[in-house]
């Protein structure tokens, strides 16, 4: 297979190997080859954030990451947040606070909020609005998304206390 590359990385804790052209985007590898359809495509210009995944501890828009850049990386998507049948506090928060409507931006939103809470477990409303500004939502007006993140932050911090 000329012009193809084998890439190995960890996806939601599991080892995966894919054979891709150098130009293949991570979002397409996830969605088309690895049955990971939680991250979505909403634009081609890295503006909407529907494709947000966590790559080695940073939020990235997987529509502008080449899969060949992911050798040995750890990739986390929405599918990896639920642990042992228990929802992540953010997943619970988005439901409890009505932080989603059509659900299309939700996986990217939650994955981005996950990174926010890793970096800043106790964000203010302004922190949240600033951190989430790379993820577009047309349904909710963001107000309940802010509440959902606050719900999760409180739940996680009270669990640690």
């Amino acid at each position: 297979m000329a012009n193809k590359h084998t890439v190995s990385f960890k996806l939601n804790g599991n080892d995966v190997d894919v054979v891709v052209e150098a130009r293949e985007l991570l979002i397409h590898t996830l969605r088309e080859r690895l049955a990971t359809t939680g991250p979505h495509i909403g634009c081609e210009t890295t503006h909407c954030g529907a494709c947000t995944v966590d790559l080695d501890g940073a939020s990235v828009k997987s529509c502008t990451v080449l899969t060949v850049q992911c050798q040995d990386a750890e990739v986390l998507t929405i599918e990896g947040l639920e642990q042992n049948g228990e929802l992540h506090a953010l997943q619970e928060g988005f439901t409890q606070e009505h932080g989603l409507q059509c659900g299309y931006c939700t996986p990217g939103m939650i994955t981005r909020a996950y990174r926010l809470l890793q970096e800043n477990p106790n964000p203010s409303e302004e922190d949240i609005r600033y951190w989430m500004a790379g993820n577009l939502c047309r349904c909710t007006g963001y107000q309940n998304i802010v509440k959902a993140v606050q719900f999760a932050a409180e739940k996680l911090s009270s669990a640690q206390a």
């Binding site: 359809t37 939680g38 997943q91 409890q96 989603l100 299309y104 996986p107």
Partner: peptide, 21 residues
């Protein structure tokens, strides 16, 4: 009442058009 639709969306398990294969 909390939404019945949410369970699939918060898990990334919605079935949008580009998910159809």
């Amino acid at each position: 009442r909390l939404r019945k639709e949410d369970a699939r969306f918060i898990r990334g398990q919605g079935t949008f058009i580009d998910d159809i294969k």
